[in-house]
């Protein structure tokens, strides 16, 4: 079974920088659990999901910045805000997402 890291490695092999976004903590009801991940490429392509909807779109936008600057950042996704919207992704919770750039030459250490 392929993991998200198989996909990450493929991009790194090609010399691309990707952003790995991970839900590190949640409060209230969220679409996915702590540890859920998605990978965003420099073109904004998404692999995996952290729950879809507006929150995911916010994270994607931030992830593209992370790739550009090669600096990680933490993003708080508030799913309370758009309670009025009809999006099925509205859960009423908050999730903190860590977005980390990965590229081939970055120190990973072995």
């Amino acid at each position: 079974m392929d993991t998200i890291y198989d996909q990450v490695k493929e991009f790194l092999d090609k010399g691309e920088t990707v952003a790995v976004a991970t839900i590190v903590s949640t409060k209230g009801s969220t679409p996915r659990e702590v540890g859920a991940k998605m990978v965003v490429t420099a073109w904004g392509e998404i692999l995996g999901t952290i729950g879809g909807g507006c929150g995911e779109a916010d994270v994607r936008r931030e992830a593209i910045e992370v790739i550009r600057t090669r600096k990680p950042r933490s993003v708080r996704v508030d799913l309370l805000d758009d309670i009025s919207s009809d999006s099925p992704a509205v859960c009423g919770g908050i999730m903190n997402v860590f977005i980390d750039p990965w590229w081939k030459e970055k120190e990973g250490g072995t």
Binding site: Y5, D13, K104, K106, E107
Partner: peptide, 10 residues
């Protein structure tokens, strides 16, 4: 990071 990715896959 490629070594780390490889290690995780392994």
């Amino acid at each position: 990071m490629i070594d780390l990715a490889q290690e995780l896959i392994q």
